[in-house]
Amino acid sequence: MLRINCPYCGEREHSEFTYGEDATRTTPDNDAPMEQWNTFVYERINPAGEHLEYWHHAFGCRAWLKVQRNTLTHDISWVGLPHENPQVQS
């Protein structure tokens, strides 16, 4: 059971949330070539380790959140708003 610390609601069980998608992709420009859109829609990196994802607090405040989750351990190390990013460890 994962727990996600929603910036609006506080720490809640993951069953209140639904997984959205990979949050590391950059949307191409509207007039970008089809190949670029194809890459955007179909190709994923699928990293083993820290990963940024969008989650929807569907059964809570309904905010979309950005979540840093370790795909190996499922540890959630950071939660923010969609346009925030975790501080890079130096």
Binding site: Y54, H56, A63, W64, P82
Partner: peptide, 13 residues
């Protein structure tokens, strides 16, 4: 509904 919310919060804030 969830899709429209996502569009507004993530894609086109």
């Amino acid at each position: 509904m969830a899709y429209l919310e996502r569009c507004l919060e993530i894609d086109w804030p």
